[in-house]
Nucleic acid binder design. Structure first.
Lengths: 346, 346
DNA sequence: ATAGTCAGCTTAATCGTTTAAGCAAATAGG
DNA sequence: CCTATTTGCTTAAACGATTAAGCTGACTAT
């Protein structure tokens, strides 16, 4: 049977003092609280001898702070989010916080559930990668004055703190890169979503085409449903490639779309980049393994994660004034999948 | 400013009763505690009206249970663990538990830190994918009577609950598969590790060779250090392929080894499976993306995760008797990377 | 009439901490 | 020597819930 954990009371008893003194000493408040140096030393010694470990739950109840951060992401098994989670975990730990991760599956209901569970668990604040239709939840957090930072996705018409990639610019850069390298019929596969980040990626793609002197063709932009990604990705690719004017390059708006798309391109024996060049969002080992390494827009994951944590921690400590809104640039990592187009020799 | 959360006391006040009654009613103990039906209804109505949400922290302090599970894994950004984490998260939620995930980086010190942090946070129990040299930590948990279940890795000479893949058999199956398909010079790249699961994978490989009539050749088994995976994987592959008796097939003992190895094979223009066939542990989208889909040993991740949670939950509820020790089989998913060897035509 | 039972509530302790307030003794200031 | 101040400690409330124990009044049984 495990011996009971030692509490402040145990130490107090052993030292023959009140628990108050023990608390003061172990929290380093001996000066302010005028604790005698000998007794302080004694208390510390006993604490070590009894291997005292403070009870976090009691602390939390008393202080109203749990030193816990809720991280809401779409799905921890998606590498982008897993990497984010890892960074957030590490950074939070450095700041004395523990992270509870919840996967929303891009689903507003699950997201709401998660928020409620974590609010009941008294997390001090949230880092949220918002799901579709979750604006109202975010609004609620604001009203309830629960600290949070939005990560990578934000609502342009809501005043909130956020740390995000500049999705517009990333997409613009990706498309421009393809144009520069000689591609002229550039398609995009995106999600059918009202989320701002997705709109921005699409807008960036469109603007780049326009600025590159290529008229935007409606048929080259395919929007598919997250919930039916596998089937619809195939259909989209068929429609883009099996026509008399097939695309010569393709931008995948997310990692998930890329995975599905690339597998299907393989099945269809479409060669990258000769049949179709690729630029993708997201980043993962998978892109290195493809026979033709995939050009991708590298989001500053480390910085995103770290900044969101430090922003939140700052909010928790100092309480807010102005919301901080931070945009970061994705870096285009050019690989063979988008190499300069060879002039076709007949 | 957010209104204060409503507590039992608020409801009690509003209803003009004591907090005890409120507690009884809201916990469905009105029968045993002989609460009058009208007042019970009133209390319930007020609770709803005030949107009462129980304070989990207070509950935990009182009960000594936090309804929280600590999940210790090597690295959440590794897809195998990310998938495990996802399953565990979902299954735990179904059982009313919240999961706190910590990444140990296969490092005993970090693992110990994590355990301590989570013990102080009063998690009710642990699910642990043990890191190297962490046997003593596990032993400590046992002695402290802290409930835990080992996941996918266990210590054969320690009596603990565990849920694990049968690593020996998986490796045996993988190697046998290669033999069946005509490969004769089968190498393996594994980690240099005393961990039992790694030893088992190696043993399975060796026994399969033996049983297949192939003498085990020491030079075909390469053990590299986890901490130097990138360099040493390259060296190992060079040594296995750039000799007068190069391997014709290769087993990667983990997902991480596979990723590094496959990328290097690509760089070296070694063709899979013509130059070298591949069987790998782990599973990931990456294997589907490779130009030649990779044969892998599919660990029963869902079942592993679910079983470990339900085992732990059972331990938490009913308290233990005999430890449960569960081995599960990995499924060999045969793909092109290990297709029957073509007889070389000269 | 009188004790016993029971329904329906309240009281108060408890979990482990923190911390404002208070008290007694020692010291300082004049 | 007498009053302030300081020093070093204790007391007790509080955080929000749970729950054993007790209290009161009504009803039952004899």
């Amino acid at each position: 049977m495990s011996a009971k954990r030692t509490s402040l009371k145990d130490i107090a008893q052993e030292a023959g003092v009140s628990t108050a003194l023990v608390s003061y000493v172990l929290n380093g408040k001996e000066k302010e609280s005028r604790v005698g140096p000998e007794i302080a030393a004694k208390i510390r010694a006993i604490a070590i001898a009894l291997n005292y470990q403070p009870n976090h739950v009691a602390k939390s109840l008393r202080s109203g702070k749990t030193q816990t951060i809720g991280l809401i992401i779409a799905d921890i098994s998606n590498p982008f989010f897993a990497n984010i989670a890892r960074i957030v975990e590490d950074e939070a730990k450095r700041n004395g916080y523990t992270v509870i991760i919840g996967s929303s599956d891009e689903n507003a209901d699950k997201s709401r559930d998660l928020l409620n569970v974590l609010i009941n668990r008294q997390v001090d604040g949230f880092i949220i990668v918002s799901a579709e239709d979750s604006a109202e939840q975010v609004q609620l957090l604001k009203e309830k004055n629960i600290p949070f930072v939005l990560l990578d996705r934000y609502f342009p018409d809501m005043q909130t703190d956020f740390v995000s990639t500049d999705h517009y610019r990333a997409a613009y850069d990706g498309a421009s890169h393809l144009i520069t390298n000689g591609y002229r019929r550039i398609g995009m596969i995106a999600y059918k979503s009202a989320m701002f980040h997705m709109q921005e990626r699409i807008r960036g793609y469109q603007d780049a085409l326009k600025d590159g002197g290529l008229p935007f063709q409606k048929g080259y932009l395919k929007k598919i449903r997250f919930t039916h990604i596998e089937q619809e990705a195939k259909v989209a690719i068929d429609e883009l490639t099996k026509t008399d004017k097939p695309v010569d390059a393709l931008i995948f708006a997310t990692y998930g779309l890329a995975i599905n798309g690339l597998i299907y391109l393989n099945e269809q024996k479409l060669n990258v980049p000769d049949d179709v060049a690729i630029v993708s969002f997201g980043q993962a080992e998978a892109f290195d393994l493809y026979y033709c390494p995939i050009t991708y827009l590298k989001q500053p994951i480390d910085l995103l994660g770290q900044t969101s944590v430090s922003l939140l921690v700052k909010k928790l400590k100092e309480s807010p004034k102005e919301p901080a809104q931070i945009l970061m640039n994705a870096e285009l990592v050019a690989r063979n999948s988008s190499k300069p187009k060879l002039i076709r020799q007949i």
